[in-house]
């Protein structure tokens, strides 16, 4: 596949707009395309997504492939894989990027193996090797304890990027690009896994992903009542509440509150880890935080190796006193 050229970014659409992860992908893709001296293409798949082509160009794409079809109104993996397979064979890129989201995680490996190549998921760094011109794909492994760099000889080289690991370009209306419509050519019978319903489990209050301050509790919180105590601290700080995996697995809080490798990946200004030991998998979700504050009764807990400030003690005593003082400070 010596004639594979250019970088392609699969752009997710959320609420009728380019998703944040799509602009991040375009930012990363632009850099790689420039390093190769080649073009950047965006792919938009959905129903009524044509209008977003201009957006993708503003964010750095030279070309936009648009597949607009009523059958593509939701993510059905069989349909999206078939369409991406078609677009990739038509455009013949040497790199395809997607986001490490519930869609990208599903789509990237299936597409890669269908195209006879491979994918590296959850990359936090992407670069072109100056010597070989191949894509260097850096991703955390062993639950965040280590990092690995992967390369592949087959094309296209497919990677997903971790949320917030890549930087979008500032949108520029002066950028010009070409829009190419592709016919989906789908048979409804090709859809073997059919999405019947989408259920939202919204967490009340400030969204974890958007909060400047996050208060997370771990297994040591002991039950749902403990999280009410954490919510009291969250209020005066306008913070969101999160959790490590055990409170979610135990049903104390909804699983959408899970922070970590297999939960949400967030990078707030301040992250309170309360009764959380600091496993590598949990830290994968919050180590991008500017300041980590640990409260744990075990002075040897790994979280103290990650935190900037800490208190060694029983959270049941520490947190209420902290809440009272914080209230006094922020109101005064």
């Amino acid at each position: 596949m010596a004639d594979n050229k250019g970088v392609m970014v699969f752009c997710e659409v959320a609420n009728g707009k380019l998703a944040g992860i799509a602009t991040e992908g375009l930012g990363a893709g632009r850099k790689l395309a420039d390093a190769l001296g080649e073009e950047l293409a965006a792919v938009l798949i959905g129903t009524g997504v044509s209008a977003l082509a201009e957006e993708a160009i503003k964010y750095g794409a030279n070309k936009v492939y648009v597949v607009d079809d009523p059958l593509l109104n939701e993510y059905h993996n069989d349909a999206f894989i078939a369409v991406m397979d078609k677009v990739a064979r038509q455009a013949n890129p040497q790199i395809i990027l997607m986001g490490q989201t519930s869609i990208g995680r599903d789509l990237a490996p299936r597409l890669a193996f269908r195209l006879g190549t491979s994918a590296t998921l959850d990359c936090i760094e992407l670069a072109i090797d100056p010597a070989t011109k191949r894509l260097l794909q850096t991703k955390p492994v062993y639950g965040g304890n280590a990092r690995a760099i992967f390369t592949m000889d087959t094309n296209p080289q497919i990677a997903t990027t971790r949320i917030k690991a890549m930087t979008p370009l500032a949108p520029d209306a002066a950028r010009k690009g070409e829009v190419i419509k592709v016919d989906a050519g789908l048979q409804p019978s090709a859809i073997k896994a059919k999405m019947l319903q989408k259920v939202k489990e919204e967490i009340e209050g400030i969204k974890l992903e958007d909060a400047q301050i996050v208060i997370s509790g771990g297994r040591g919180i002991g039950g749902p009542d403990g999280f009410k105590v954490l919510a009291e601290l969250a209020k005066p700080l306008k913070a969101a509440t999160g959790a490590s995996r055990p409170p979610c697995d135990n049903g104390w809080v909804p699983s959408t509150m899970q922070v970590g490798l297999t939960g949400k990946i967030i990078a707030p200004e301040v992250y309170f880890a309360i009764a959380i030991s600091g496993s590598s998998q949990h830290m994968s979700g919050c180590s991008g935080s500017k300041n980590i504050i640990a409260i744990n009764k075990d002075p040897e807990a790994n979280i103290f190796r990650e935190a900037r400030f800490g208190v060694v003690g029983d959270w049941k005593k520490v947190v209420p006193a902290l809440t009272t003082k914080v209230k006094e400070l922020v109101s005064g």
Binding site: S102, A193, K194, M195, L196, K198, K200, E201, T256, K264
Partner: peptide, 12 residues
């Protein structure tokens, strides 16, 4: 599982 909830999928 999705980031903000879940999907119900029927698969053959």
């Amino acid at each position: 599982m999705t980031a903000d909830g879940y999907e119900v999928i029927e698969v053959t």
